[in-house]
Design a protein around this nucleic acid. Sequence first.
DNA 1: CTCCTGGTTTGAAATCTGTCAAGATAGAAG
DNA 2: CTTCTATCTTGACAGATTTCAAACCAGGAG
Lengths: 125, 125
Amino acid sequence: MSKQKLPLLDATSTVECCSPLMHEPLAAVQAVELARVFKAMGDPVRLRLLSLIASHEGGEACVCDLSEVFDLTGPTISHHLKVLREAGLIAGERRGTWIYYRVQTEALDLASQVLAPGAASAVHA
Amino acid sequence: MSKQKLPLLDATSTVECCSPLMHEPLAAVQAVELARVFKAMGDPVRLRLLSLIASHEGGEACVCDLSEVFDLTGPTISHHLKVLREAGLIAGERRGTWIYYRVQTEALDLASQVLAPGAASAVHA
DNA sequence: CTCCTGGTTTGAAATCTGTCAAGATAGAAG
DNA sequence: CTTCTATCTTGACAGATTTCAAACCAGGAG
């Protein structure tokens, strides 16, 4: 285990429940963690993959479902899925011949909270 | 009007008030727009810049305030600020000798909403 | 076992990014 | 006008990203 393949934000790391970016200067270490997530989302293909998986029936989709949507080769799709996986945004499970991916909602929620809906209206509910 | 330097998400473009990524497959065009925002946030330095600006007194900070925090040269900071600016995440205003940046909260809110706090609890109906 | 299909891994090429040094600009101050 | 300070722009370069083709692995069907 040489590399940092942490699931990403620990929730224990820094950003607790409601500490949007906007209240206090983000520390360098957390910035690196957070940036990894946003970077993973910073590509049109990956964003669409994320969206496709999440909105697919049952909340999951196999690679074959995803591949046919894009004009890209298998390896490329596979690569993007790997990036999303390593950012902790999705998880895959093999079931028979196919591998099904689903979104890790915790990670997504966390990212959303960090961005804080207004940072002022966040607590409203 | 060469649709290149749009302020970014138009709010009229696609993501209305509450259409998180997770309800329907994101169209290619919007994916590109959105990705630009997330990509801008996908760098530790830029994330910290954003956070520093937002949390700074008065909600704004001049470049000099920001530069002293990092171990980077002026041009580099300037470059990152430009990326954030072009993603519509911040805006700068010259006041005398200094240039003050402040966060464009609308863009941030939009990004946060797209990520949808749960996507299940957002509309929940 | 052999073949086929769904996915991933590896390797390589083109492009993009982050960073710095050096030069350019804008406004304030002599 | 000249100079000083704050910030941006340009040019260059190492390192990262995106993408494809070719090779590889895992299960299911003959």
